[in-house]
């Protein structure tokens, strides 16, 4: 059974079409990324999946049930964008409420609240009110509430926006460590982050579904992306294009090159590249099998 199934899903706010005839089917497993420019309809899609909004037309089901239905309670959780916890109540009392609503006893709900707040590094502030927390801490508290109980699907809308690099890494590591049991759908503008976390990428633009990209395709992709620290760019392109099996070398950014090759003609291209770097005393920053997500989506 599909985890998420949207069929000709549309949502409009007055005359503005936020989602236009979107049909997708997603299966549970590795984290799924949802990307797109501002106003592309990502948050609207999340809100429809969570049942916060009703579709204007089309249908959406999660695990075969309508969003917000009794059967999904506790199985789907989310970090909604712009939603804040009650500023007048401390974190743990709100988490106990969430836990008890999910069927836990008061004691178990307290333990669960402490567990999830510890996961996001907020064990020391459980007795504090949200208004006394920084933006980053509030965001982490909101992520923690999404992990209460045993959700099967967690929708995270911009989970690392506004977090410092160290805490963004904590969140990424958390998603990685939990993704064996939970399917995450993550909306973010940080493509590097999504590349590290997700296997499947869905691209939305102006409310329409763009391309769907699989990061795992990189393994069979006949591309290598190289970021160089020091090199003679013209010579770099000429020398690599001269290698057997290489079709083309394109400079993507100032120091990033995309090498397209024919896998049937060459099976040691990486070794040849390293030998070339060594001969010319060039230093590389990164080598990626395949293309970067940015390149796949926007080129």
């Amino acid at each position: 059974m599909s985890l998420i199934k949207c069929e000709q899903l549309s949502k409009s706010y007055g005359s503005k079409q936020a989602l236009d005839n979107v049909s997708i089917e997603l299966k549970s497993g590795s984290p799924i990324a949802l990307v797109g420019p501002n106003g592309a309809g990502k948050t609207t899609l999340f809100s429809l999946l969570c049942g916060y909004l009703l579709p204007s037309s089309g249908s959406v089901t999660i695990m075969g049930e309508k969003p917000g239905s009794q059967g999904l309670l506790g199985k789907v959780s989310s970090l909604p964008q712009d939603a804040t916890l009650d500023p007048n109540l401390n974190l743990i009392s709100q988490f106990i409420l969430f836990g008890t609503l999910q069927g836990l006893s008061a004691k178990a709900a307290r333990d669960e609240g402490q567990r999830v707040l510890t996961l996001v590094g907020l064990a020391d502030v459980i007795e504090q009110k949200p208004q006394s927390l920084s933006h980053g801490m509030s965001k982490r508290a909101s992520i923690a509430q999404a992990l209460i109980g045993s959700p099967q699907l967690v929708l995270l809308d911009e989970p690392t926006a506004g977090l410092d690099p160290a805490n963004a890494k904590v969140v990424r590591d958390l998603v990685k460590s939990l993704s064996a049991n939970i399917t995450f759908v993550i909306s973010s503008h940080n493509l590097d982050e999504l590349e590290k976390l997700c296997d499947q990428v869905i691209y939305l633009d102006k409310g329409k579904l763009g391309r769907e990209v699989s990061i795992q395709d990189n393994l069979t992709d006949e591309y290598i992306t190289v970021s160089m620290q020091t090199c003679d760019k013209a010579q770099f392109i000429n020398d690599i294009e001269a290698l057997n099996g290489v079709n083309s070398v394109t400079q993507r950014q100032d120091d990033e090159f995309l090498i397209h090759y024919n896998a049937d003609d060459v099976n040691d291209l990486e070794i040849q590249l390293f030998q070339l770097f060594s001969r010319n005393s060039w230093r590389y920053r990164a080598i990626l099998k395949g293309r970067s997500l940015e390149d796949k989506l926007f080129s």
């Binding site: 969570c50 049942g51 909604p80 969430f98």
Partner: peptide, 11 residues
């Protein structure tokens, strides 16, 4: 403030 969004997925 969107606090209901934390409740509607639980009840």
């Amino acid at each position: 403030r969107g606090t209901f969004r934390f409740l509607t997925l639980r009840t």
